[in-house]
Simulated scan of single mutants.
Amino acid sequence: MTAVDRSEPDTVAAARGLPTAVAHRTNRLQSPILPPDLSDEDVVGRRLAAKATGRGQLATTTLAQYRTEGERLFWYARQTGMPISRCGLDEFSAYVGFLQAPAP
């Protein structure tokens, strides 16, 4: 997967007309298992790796589809300048709308 642009939160907030406090929110919960400094890409990569092995192992085709959807989500995050871990309901609703009718 490719890296998401790491824009400064204040810059992203200002560009989107959001209050600075909104830019600093994070939706990623503290994990008792994962180190706290993982990037969005690291978290998604570890989840895919976990789904490829063990009791919850997914079919190869399902994993390929998960990877494709992850790449689309990271592409969208780069386009909007909002890291996935900072996205809220409005951003994910916009992402779903984009998938239903992408710009040419």
Rank of each mutant, 00 (worst) to 15 (best):
T62L: 02
T61Q: 15
S93Y: 10
V44W: 12
A21G: 09
S31W: 02
S93T: 10
Y66A: 01
Q57R: 14
L48G: 00
I33F: 05
P32A: 07
D10R: 13
F92L: 14
T62H: 03
K51M: 08
G56R: 01
L48Q: 00
T61S: 15
A23H: 13
R78D: 07
D40E: 10
R86I: 01
F98E: 15
R78E: 05
P32F: 03
S31R: 06
L38E: 06
I84T: 08
F92I: 07
A3G: 14
P32T: 04
A13Y: 08
M82R: 13
T26L: 06
Q100P: 02
A94K: 12
L89G: 14
L63A: 05
L58F: 00
A52W: 00
A49V: 01
G88P: 03
D37M: 05
A52Y: 00
T60S: 13
P19L: 07
A59C: 05
T20Q: 15
R16S: 09
L29W: 03
Q57W: 06
S31Q: 04
A23K: 09
V96Y: 12
Q100W: 09
S7D: 11
R46E: 11
C87N: 07
A59W: 01
T11C: 06
R25F: 09
T62A: 04
F74H: 08
T68H: 12
E41P: 03
R6H: 15
A77G: 07
Y66W: 06
T20F: 11
A64G: 08
G70Q: 11
T26S: 14
Q30D: 10
T62Y: 00
T80R: 15
L29T: 04
T80S: 13
I33L: 10
E71I: 02
F98T: 12
A13I: 02
F98A: 15
Y95A: 05
Y76L: 04
I33M: 08
A59V: 00
R72N: 12
R78L: 02
A101I: 02
R16I: 03
P102G: 09
A103G: 12
L18R: 10
A23P: 08
A14S: 14
F74T: 01
P36G: 07
D40A: 08
A101R: 13
A101E: 12
A64N: 05
V4L: 10
D37C: 05
D90T: 10
T68P: 02
M82F: 04
T53W: 00
E41D: 06
T80H: 13
W75H: 08
G81L: 02
M82E: 13
R25L: 11
A52F: 00
V43P: 01
L63Y: 02
S85A: 06
T20V: 10
D90L: 06
D5S: 07
R55Q: 06
T61E: 14
P36A: 11
I33E: 15
G45N: 11
L48I: 00
L63Q: 09
H24Q: 08
G56H: 08
A101V: 02
